[in-house]
Simulated scan of single mutants.
Amino acid sequence: MTERRQVALFVTCLVDTMRPRIGFASIAALEAAGCEVVVPAAQTCCGQPALNSGARRDAEALARQTIAVLEKYAHVVVPSGSCAGTIRVHYPEILAGDPEWGPRAEALAGRTWEILAFLDQVCGWRPEGVTLPVAAAYHDSCAGLRELGIKAQPRRLLAAIEALRLMPLAGEETCCGFGGTFCVKYPAISNAITEEKAQAIEASGADLLLAGDLGCLMNMAGKLHRQGSPVRVMHTVEVLAGMGAGPAIGEAE
């Protein structure tokens, strides 16, 4: 009998507060891929908002706290490219000068994965018996694409969904306008970027928009909803876990 991988799920603030369904879908997909999933109760924010806002000391404190909670696990999996990128890329940077925490940050970074990359690259998993007859478009979120190299992995996973057609999306690698605190600091620029993205999504002919970062998804879902678009929006792991027929982001649960 093959030993099950022990995985710590880092849920993220947005998933916890705005879309817990993504957390449950993550557990379902990881268990289907043969993992034993633990959700450490002491986890909090990864520190990304503080880091983006220039609050370096606060970001370092949250990094140390997160490392202490997660470092005992063989694998840490995150349903967010931006939060996974914070742990994997930025923790070693901001703690590089700390003789104790720098090496601990490096060690945790090497065991931290965005969930779609983990399911594809580490588990070699493909969903079985999942059918969703829709035309879907995929948006490559900036952090996942540029910090973690996530591009082909979600598309390989989605190719195993029966009846799902992946439509070409113009500007699929272009920012959606969210950018964490960017949308708060520069709302007019953010709105203009999101407007272009919404137009491209509508033009794709897709019924469903997918991505791997809830912040981006909420931003695009909000714009599409305000424009009266029928396009539904979901996190990719929800579809992979067989939850694609449920309520989309912005719809009543």
Rank of each mutant, 00 (worst) to 15 (best):
D140I: 03
I87D: 06
G222F: 03
E93H: 10
L164W: 05
R111Q: 06
H225K: 11
E3R: 05
L145S: 12
L157R: 08
G124H: 05
A192C: 10
Q48S: 14
C45V: 07
F182Y: 06
M167K: 13
G205N: 00
R5P: 15
R57G: 15
M18R: 10
G81S: 09
A143G: 15
Q6C: 10
V38K: 00
G47Q: 07
I189E: 15
A200I: 00
G81F: 14
A50F: 14
G244Y: 09
L210T: 07
L166T: 05
P79W: 01
A61Y: 12
E162D: 09
Q227R: 06
A211R: 07
V130H: 07
V130K: 04
V15T: 03
A117R: 10
A117P: 11
T194H: 10
A159E: 15
P20E: 01
E251A: 03
F10L: 01
D58C: 06
E93V: 11
A28H: 08
P168L: 03
A59R: 05
G85H: 05
I22M: 07
V77C: 08
L30S: 03
M18K: 15
Q153F: 14
L164K: 11
G149P: 07
A105S: 08
A135T: 13
R155K: 14
C123Q: 01
Q227T: 07
R21N: 12
P187F: 10
C35Q: 08
L217E: 12
G250P: 08
P187Q: 12
A143L: 13
A221N: 01
V184F: 10
P187T: 08
D58F: 06
I67W: 04
G102Q: 00
L132Q: 04
E253C: 09
L148G: 12
A192H: 14
N219D: 10
H90M: 11
Q227K: 12
C13P: 02
A32I: 12
L148K: 10
Q48H: 14
A136T: 03
R155M: 02
K223L: 06
A59M: 01
L166N: 14
V239M: 08
G129S: 02
R126C: 04
V78A: 01
G171L: 04
T194P: 10
P168T: 08
